[in-house]
Design a protein around this nucleic acid. Structure first.
Lengths: 195, 195
DNA sequence: CACTAGAGTGACCATGCGCCCACTCTAGTG
DNA sequence: CACTAGAGTGGGCGCATGGTCACTCTAGTG
């Protein structure tokens, strides 16, 4: 069924399809065929818009990173209001949604992807690194406001929170957020800093 | 070059070869061909000793879990001597060696593997779950000895420590242990419990 | 209204995977 | 010393993957 009609935003359409496949079927099923089929387009579309499949995946991850960065401002604006524990729990729960977790798993699983992402300027483990920076920024703001201990080691606390929360979600196997468990983790890590 | 001579412990030989390939070349290169080539045996050997490749991988992970469990007793025996922080740092650094990290990455990457491992009775994320149980046991012992706060939430602290430490190593990309970073994580998480 | 540049299509290709199995060799048996 | 059960070998099969490209259709142009 050949069509000459242009798709609307084929790149984003493919990104969304890939996210659906990833969350629904897992990394093992994330193939170029599965993505294009899910998007309802021919295989050729992907290769017209991306150099190769790994380039597509790289841009997919970078696209998600951009969204996380957009949310970073939100968390930082919360500094000073509500409770530190509550703000962090909410940010971690909403930040590590099933798609974000699947994306992290994807990066872990695909060796090649890490190389390309590093070439794209995203050092360390992407998504996690961005998320840690976001949390560190918030914690610094709270510290400046005197709401957490002045000697709190922000640069250690941030990746610790992310790591522990990340594991929680990985363990849950892409399941729905478990805010209670995340809140306990946040409380445990910040217990000393909050006094 | 056909040989009828029996190999010595071909299963363990293949396990070791797989670990080498995994650490050296990454998950993407861990194929049945690569493993048997690394072991210096023909492809057929693997299929004589294991039903299929995923069964081999499953047993590989279970083999590593057994080693971790064997080390659990060591950590628990340390309760009461040295420092809590030091004991945990050492256990986490030696426990999350490159092979263990690669093994966790392998489990994350292979959807099929998780299903099989669960069927084998290993619930949650294997290796991580075992390690958390090990740390929880140690922390409980220290709490009974009065060396950490009586109200410390051991069951939250343990997976938090594992998660944060795990991320450290994943970020480092199978690199050598970074005891300093791990020690800071341990101190941050236990700061309140140690008062 | 003829023309064309651009976008989507899908049969096809090479590659590499897990797996099979006819075969060879050896060590043990009586 | 003939026989055989068992273990290791490796060419090759079927399949799914990522990638190619001659083709078709459409929207826009002068």
């Amino acid at each position: 069924m050949p069509t000459g009609v242009a798709l609307r935003d084929p790149r984003q359409q493919l990104f969304d399809a890939a996210a659906r496949v990833l969350v629904r079927d897992g990394v093992g099923e994330l193939t170029s065929r599965a993505v294009t089929a899910e998007a309802g387009v021919a295989k050729g579309v992907l290769h017209r818009h991306f150099a190769d499949f790994d380039a597509f995946l790289t841009e997919l991850v970078l696209d998600r990173i951009a969204r996380i960065e957009a949310r970073a401002a939100d968390l930082r604006d919360r500094a000073g209001s509500g409770t530190v524990t509550g703000n962090l729990t909410e940010a971690l729960v909403s930040g590590f949604d099933p798609v974000a977790v699947a994306m992290i798993v994807l990066v872990i699983a695909r060796d090649e992807l890490r190389t390309r992402l590093r070439a794209a300027g995203t050092a360390r483990l992407p998504l996690v690194g961005e998320a840690a920076a976001m949390v560190a920024g918030y914690l610094t703001a709270e510290r400046d406001l005197g709401r957490i201990a002045a000697d709190a080691d922000v640069d250690t606390l941030a990746p610790t929170l992310i790591g522990a929360a990340h594991l929680r979600f990985t363990e849950e196997e892409h399941g729905p957020a478990a805010p209670e468990a995340v809140r306990r983790v946040v409380e445990a890590v910040l217990a000393a800093a909050l006094r």
